[in-house]
Design a protein around this nucleic acid. Sequence first.
DNA 1: ATGTAACCGAGACGGTACGTCACGTCTTCAC
DNA 2: GTGAAGACGTGACGTACCGTCTCGGTTACAT
Lengths: 209, 209, 209, 209
Amino acid sequence: MAESTPLEDSRAPRRGPDPRRRSERARRAVLRAASELLGEVGYAKVTVEAIAARAGVGKQTIYRWWPSKAAVVFDVFTALTGGTAGEPLPDTGDLAADLRTVLRAIVDEFNDPEMDRTTRAFTTELQNDPVFAEAVNERLLRPNTEAFKDRLRAGREAGQLAPGADLDIVTELLTGPLHHRWLMRTGPLTHAYADELVETVLAAVGPRD
Amino acid sequence: MAESTPLEDSRAPRRGPDPRRRSERARRAVLRAASELLGEVGYAKVTVEAIAARAGVGKQTIYRWWPSKAAVVFDVFTALTGGTAGEPLPDTGDLAADLRTVLRAIVDEFNDPEMDRTTRAFTTELQNDPVFAEAVNERLLRPNTEAFKDRLRAGREAGQLAPGADLDIVTELLTGPLHHRWLMRTGPLTHAYADELVETVLAAVGPRD
Amino acid sequence: MAESTPLEDSRAPRRGPDPRRRSERARRAVLRAASELLGEVGYAKVTVEAIAARAGVGKQTIYRWWPSKAAVVFDVFTALTGGTAGEPLPDTGDLAADLRTVLRAIVDEFNDPEMDRTTRAFTTELQNDPVFAEAVNERLLRPNTEAFKDRLRAGREAGQLAPGADLDIVTELLTGPLHHRWLMRTGPLTHAYADELVETVLAAVGPRD
Amino acid sequence: MAESTPLEDSRAPRRGPDPRRRSERARRAVLRAASELLGEVGYAKVTVEAIAARAGVGKQTIYRWWPSKAAVVFDVFTALTGGTAGEPLPDTGDLAADLRTVLRAIVDEFNDPEMDRTTRAFTTELQNDPVFAEAVNERLLRPNTEAFKDRLRAGREAGQLAPGADLDIVTELLTGPLHHRWLMRTGPLTHAYADELVETVLAAVGPRD
DNA sequence: ATGTAACCGAGACGGTACGTCACGTCTTCAC
DNA sequence: GTGAAGACGTGACGTACCGTCTCGGTTACAT
């Protein structure tokens, strides 16, 4: 949770170790160990030392390739989400149904303990570190938002959304409350809740009959 | 960010120091120091030792009255919000206008650097500590939600909201996106944004004309 | 074996912790643990961490009171020699006999494994660190040399030494070879050797008959 | 300063690399780099990594040919002394004069900063490592002692020494104090001191007039 | 009004983890 | 198949804070 935690050593002539010599075995072991520990003890209690010990790896090997614990967690997270960021939403022609499907999937993710833990770890870093936040926005949040907007746009063109609907706002209305409820634990996350959100939001921005 | 951080030493016959003998000077100095440090270095880098040093207070004095760093921050936060939790929303008779007023105020709060820092610190703890989360929910979030619902209920009775509107969902639709945008820094927080949120949500749940 | 290892934080207003609050228990435990470890694994393999662990003491407690491993060993050494530095040599009136007694005692010390280990540790630091060397000279070597010279002076006045004998040289002739043989392991250290040294040196500087 | 540091990989069928293919360039570069670093930062702070880096040599090349840092220093030392170990002392017929010559030369060596540094490094290893000590004794100290004794024996036969003089003791009386004074920094090393040592020792073991 | 309990500041204590350094080994290329 | 380069597992370094535990010194309460 440093003030400014780069996820990589960024632009510029690339100081540091030669990535070609990097041990794939060590990389995998670290991510696996970190993931397990995140699930077992939670982000705050994960230590770099414990990750190294469980991975059977030298601490220096972690510090050689990741600038911080946050960066390791970032890699764990991206490994977990499997690079699905920005993948298009389903399009069956029925916007409401598709949105229900997607929001229910998000609910399920949040209810999965491992995802829950990792995502919280992630959000903890993100919220206290603008640099990290920007990196995550760029690679994860924005692509996902765009995917949402693409589906909504298709729906709008199909006449399932009011012509003037602000797609950014609609996306936020769908995901914001969900995320907020999860983060603050202000209520249960259920499929019914997902459905109700979709219904209510579409009532606002759907076409008037 | 401990696994379980009570905000006070809880129920039961109240073991511990005699609150009547508590030094008001020390209490103030601690809160002031904590607040300053939060603003200067961010929550994660604030240490109890630094708070004590800046406050000119013994470390034990902090541990005597607060069970954790989180609890100190909680007090800083409640001192900042001035105990406004649960205060009724304005009611001018114009629901949309009143909601705009309130959401604009929330936007302003989030844009205030000190509030921003402190609230983030706060949210960090909250999201990683279910016990803390419950305490905060009970004392801050739920009362605020109830205040929202009260105003919405009044509006519904005045015919400014559809009779079947789910007040919980409406509240979340209004505050969730705002909070999400602030937390994840996914976009600017402006009065215009607040207004658009109110307008869109009321479009969903307002009476059909 | 740092370039310059003070044994204390030296002259001047005395920065650092308050010695009145120092825990005697911890001090003893550290010296005991260090002494044991010196005997078991040798100076080079003693680590501050091991001392702390065996003493049941925090590492910081060692660093708080001793600037280096060398300083701890210095204290072990002075504890072992029991502050005998500078104590007068025996004076029975028979110079040769008294010198034999003293040199035999030195031989015995060098043959004691614990003293051997500790003294080597000591000498290692001393020889690589002029500051340490000066400190040791001042507190141990010079007082001992002076004690030797005092006894020799008394002998000279009693006519047992040539009137012009250089007491410094005589002292070095007596202790230098002994120390050298011990340090370099160039030969056995026995009472007979001690006796022969005394005899030979006194032959040089004794009165001519 | 390991417990037991061989200078070579010792007896047995000689496992390891083929010495015929050894790079003379690398060997020289390592010794030069080690020598420079010894002079610059002192033995304790010289690292194998630094030697390798300065020599432009892989670390493995050092470990391939030398078992330890001590062994490298040993080679530096023997390179410096130029294989003079065991060379006969000068014999002009005047024992006292010859001894003065030799002891003055030793004094000069000790006063040479590079020799001083290297010899200290050397002695550090030696004193903490019996195996190393024995190796050094065998190759350097004993040959030198023998050279001394040879010259003394010649002198004894020429009637410049008492017939019963113990040549070992006399050698130690001449070199021990010198070495001790250098090692412990207990006094200045000058030609006058060398001369006085010779004079005093010969007074003991010279022929009675 | 005074004795005393307890809060105060200070900070030493046993610990945990940090991020760095160097070790000696192992792996990969280029010559 | 040696030699450079350098990543690897290991382990100690010295530092920063943790939360607990004494220390006097100083209130302020209950006698």
